[in-house]
Amino acid sequence: MIRLTDIERKFRVGDETVHALRGVSLDIAAGEYLSIMGPSGSGKSSLLNVLGLLDRPNAGRYELDGRDVTGLTDDELAQVRREKIGFVFQFFHLVPRLTAEQNIELPMMLAGIDPLERRRRLDRLLTEYGLESRARHRPDQLSGGQCQRVAIARAMSMEPGVILADEPTGNLDRHTGQEVMALLEALHAGGGTLVVVTHDAELGNRARRRIRIVDGAIVADARD
């Protein structure tokens, strides 16, 4: 489903070049559950951003569902993101002035989905993530765990094949983090592909496949 070949990502900082990803090659099959771990600054987020088509590699080839997406225009990339990829971030990234419901609705709104269909999906997502009573609350009126549930519901609203989560529990206490992981894993159980970046070895080890990245290169790729 996903095939990365010799992906390079470099950043120029002043005169220096920072190598965030060096020659990363990675195959991810549909329905896999994969964790990415590694020290801070090793390139985990960079890899996830490339996977999520938020960032373009400097070199290498990226195939998604058999299609080469390396050369797509920004607008084509936006469309692929909208349809195939759901993001979950460490800092939730909810729009502060919008209610939980409106935040969940955003991707569907951008995709121009019919309001009736949106309502239908919203009701289902709100129930599924236990947010019915919070639908009209704004993010500052929600707990961290609730915020992340809203973010997950938002990621799922377009029913994407791939969920990418960058330290989704990084801002949550242990217990809430576990709950959020359980929700993400439920998505995987439902057939979705799940990629989680985490610092937490215990959480990382729950994944069937564990990638370790150091200094921009994959140094381990373990499977149960």
Partner: peptide, 10 residues
């Protein structure tokens, strides 16, 4: 950034 991440075009 978020809008773009969830699929907004320029």
């Amino acid at each position: 950034g978020l809008l773009k991440a969830v699929g907004a075009t320029s």
